[in-house]
Design a protein around this nucleic acid. Sequence first.
DNA 1: TCAACGATTCGATAAATGTTGAAATATGGA
DNA 2: TCCATATTTCAACATTTATCGAATCGTTGA
Lengths: 116, 116
Amino acid sequence: MDPQHVIRALGALAQEHRLAAFRLLVQAGPQGLAAGALAEALGVAPSSLSFHLAQLSHAGLVSQRREGRSILYSADYPAMTGLLAYLTENCCAGQDQCGPAAACAPASTSEERNVA
Amino acid sequence: MDPQHVIRALGALAQEHRLAAFRLLVQAGPQGLAAGALAEALGVAPSSLSFHLAQLSHAGLVSQRREGRSILYSADYPAMTGLLAYLTENCCAGQDQCGPAAACAPASTSEERNVA
DNA sequence: TCAACGATTCGATAAATGTTGAAATATGGA
DNA sequence: TCCATATTTCAACATTTATCGAATCGTTGA
């Protein structure tokens, strides 16, 4: 994982609404949530949230798919795991006593996902 | 760990020079590195680095102590561990299959440190 | 085809962030 | 005391980021 990518991911999470949105998506699982549902849950204008979701998407932390009129966003668990791994990579000066960051997999329907 | 604190920490790490500085400090261990040594290693103007170190310090990610003319900065491992814990807290919708983030302790002179 | 709905894109604007050089503060040694 | 070293603070500036409302783009169903 290259540093620029890590910085984008950290920057994407370092904002009140985006961190909250990401947490909701992580909890929502692979099915995800519609942009509108997120906007309402967070109390943010749709156009504002769209901007934030684009940031998260650009950082590779969320993915989107259309379903009817809605666009469903879902957390990208492998990306999250990769970010944690990078942060702990230097931990203990390379000696992996800390162990790698725990893999982050969705609780349900985990059978359809490969966390490489 | 409250969300505002988490955001400060993430924001502190979401910058090229600060992320690099923090990594160097994590690798340097509890003894830390002088501000000047960091500035030279990163190729950043001293006043610029001072600004960045203040951000990291305000986020609670590093601590400082004076030694002679130098000010030595060192990574705050418990803070790092707390940050990772927060990020994984929501993982798997609360079911801790992911396990908590691995504790991050310095490799050497670990006898003088309490990672609660 | 048309109207309603869900979401994004586009401008404009306000706020926060990063950089630099000069000046100020603190320490150590002659 | 005086000077050199190490670092921070300050002010100015350019850049990036966040917000909102209006306009636009897809999709659905009558």
